[in-house]
Design a protein around this nucleic acid. Sequence first.
DNA 1: CTATAACTATGACATTTATCATGTTATAAC
DNA 2: GTTATAACATGATAAATGTCATAGTTATAG
Lengths: 226, 226
Amino acid sequence: MNKCDQCIVRQLSSLKALNKDEVIKLANSKTTYTIKKGEAIFEEGDVTNGVFCVKDGVGKLSKLSANGKDQIVKLVKSGELLGQRSMISNEPANLSAKAIADMEVCFIPKSEIIHFFNNNNQFSLNLMQSVCEDLKESENDKIALVQKTVKQRLAETLLHLHNEFGENEDKTLKVQLTREELAGIIGTATESCIRLLSDFNKLELIELVGKKIMLKNVKALKRMAE
Amino acid sequence: MNKCDQCIVRQLSSLKALNKDEVIKLANSKTTYTIKKGEAIFEEGDVTNGVFCVKDGVGKLSKLSANGKDQIVKLVKSGELLGQRSMISNEPANLSAKAIADMEVCFIPKSEIIHFFNNNNQFSLNLMQSVCEDLKESENDKIALVQKTVKQRLAETLLHLHNEFGENEDKTLKVQLTREELAGIIGTATESCIRLLSDFNKLELIELVGKKIMLKNVKALKRMAE
DNA sequence: CTATAACTATGACATTTATCATGTTATAAC
DNA sequence: GTTATAACATGATAAATGTCATAGTTATAG
């Protein structure tokens, strides 16, 4: 039995469609990397020529703007694939991928993925559905950015982070984002984000435990989000 | 020779990968519709069970918000496929599709597409790339929404419309959008959009010919957009 | 051909959000 | 442990954008 077979990525991603032989092929071609918090897996413009499996940790896909702000497009966690889009489009990465918490990732060369894509219908359908899921989410985010206020988007994002990543024993959010990163997700200035967190704190919607955030009134947050 | 073979959609979309037999199969299963300006092809929540080929005309994919504003996510023109995402995801439509100019579309049932997807690697790759293209565009739009001002987005959108759809003999933009629709694309209030168009007009970046818009200083618009 | 509705336009004003300034607190480096 | 650095926080202010009101203009139906 080889390592890829039991891997969380294999269980959660499009790779679940692979058969035994394919998994062996996969295990033989992959390369494993450790990425420390803050480090990049790839940068905007890099030609990656493959995809990255996220075995552990949390990463962000983001784009730096002219004025130095880092807009976060998506967070990724263990079990997900990274860099599918640019690999399929045959283009350099449109976004940078960086670790928010220490990560363990495996690189799978493009040739492998294309091989699976061409020979395994279920895999190609899975991959397709995964990109479609990203597309739907991106479109909905886009609409939320325009139609909701910063306050609504912050409430929505806090709930989303809670759902996606869960909470620690002390009930604080498990993903440890800086205020700047949080601002980068909701698309606002860092100061505005901090100010609103203070407001939410005063309203007892959340509690600020140092730099950590604890959701105190989920119902009210939900009401605020829509 | 059957009709689908010469169709513009067949030439431009993922369908270009189909072989002769497949095109015949396609021609036998399709249904043609005429959609008048303003009418819907499908609405948010509809289960479409197939894709629509845009043979002629212009359509918009949009989502209505709680406050009654219609956010436009994408414009589609002849040669493109519509409803790929929700068909692949097996979900009701996330967006509404409506005609902006009279349209001619063909409906292709899901069973056909899935059949092509499973039996024609080039087709599945094409389809995949098309969704990836949409994803990239959506992500970049999302970033632009946050990082650019309304003024910049208007300039950018005018240039984009010019590139995508071209101009009439009188040099005005070929796509005839209402100010409200234009506002829905850039994500702003209709009044703000009108006001900025007036400003651009005074600055001689554009000229307002009745409801039509003519680009007068493309260079300056480009400068303004970034 | 008129009347009705939809679209375009603009002013006045309110609200939201960004920016700049400054101080505090936490974290990391030595 | 102390110093340096990054992260958090908050006030003051400016800028951008939305909202409401109102009016002119164009298209459409009958």
